[in-house]
Design a protein around this nucleic acid. Structure first.
Length: 233
DNA sequence: GCGACAG
DNA sequence: ATCTTGTCGC
């Protein structure tokens, strides 16, 4: 898949923050054209004592449930998988995750032959101090719809959503709704979902839940996590 | 100065 | 994120 290059990655922390503020204005909030059929999950992992970064992208196709027990539940078939590895060149700094993980993620996505309708990213979308978390940043480079599905909170306040699967509550940064706290599995810690690029919060929440089966993470994300985990070994 | 802080 | 297997519980 084609990937754009909007700027250099080797920047000072101040320059990195300036780039985020500038690019945040490029994020587009638009209704998803059609229900996503080809969905990708992206995740990173570290190895060699934290000197190497790995990324894996798993592409799935949503298919109609067939078996009786699967009725009404999401079913997927594997389309393809791609991965990449690089030397770590940036430390982990809350708010600057993109400069540490985006390069490898883009390298992995560039190897895809398919063109996913949407990407589920392990990190925040606009639920970020400068409104440009990893999912949003990647969305701009990919020029594709992206959704941020983070396992924990970076910024924002919220009321605990109901304990049932599907329950969700808004994530606020002051008066602004920057995302949603979504219960993807009953009685389990919720996910922090936010718009990455080219979609709306309602789309992000719906797609995330539509891709979730019996686990906390949506299938594309869960499989990408498994794929990248075995890479570092 | 203190506390918070995606992966 | 990472160091790490089995184990308790639904």
């Amino acid at each position: 898949m084609r990937v754009r290059t909007l700027h250099e990655w080797h920047l000072s922390y101040a320059e990195a923050r300036a780039v985020q503020s500038r690019l945040a204005g490029e994020v587009r909030f638009e209704r998803l054209r059609k229900e996503p059929e080809i969905i990708a999950g992206l995740d990173c992992a570290f190895g060699d004592g934290g000197k190497r970064v790995f990324a894996a992208v798993v592409v799935l196709r949503r298919v109609a449930a067939s078996t009786p027990k699967a009725l009404g539940m999401a079913s997927f078939e594997l389309v393809e998988t791609a991965s990449a590895a690089m030397d770590v060149t940036f430390p982990y700094i809350p708010g600057l995750l993109s400069f540490r993980e985006a390069p490898v993620c883009l390298a992995a996505v560039a190897k895809l032959e398919s063109e996913p309708d949407v990407f589920l990213v392990d990190g925040q979308g606009i639920a970020h101090p400068r409104r440009l978390g990893l999912a949003s940043h990647l969305g701009l480079f990919l020029d594709k719809p992206t959704i941020g599905c983070a396992k924990s909170r970076l910024i924002g306040t919220f009321d605990e959503p109901g304990a049932e699967k599907g329950a969700h509550s808004p994530l606020y940064d002051g008066d602004e709704v920057v995302g949603a706290v979504v219960r993807t599995r009953a009685d389990v810690k919720p996910l922090f979902v936010s718009v990455g690029h080219r979609c709306r919060l309602e789309d992000a929440i719906r797609v995330t839940l539509a891709c979730t089966t019996r686990y906390r993470l949506p299938e594309p994300s869960r499989l990408a996590h498994q794929a990248v985990s075995q890479l570092k070994r």
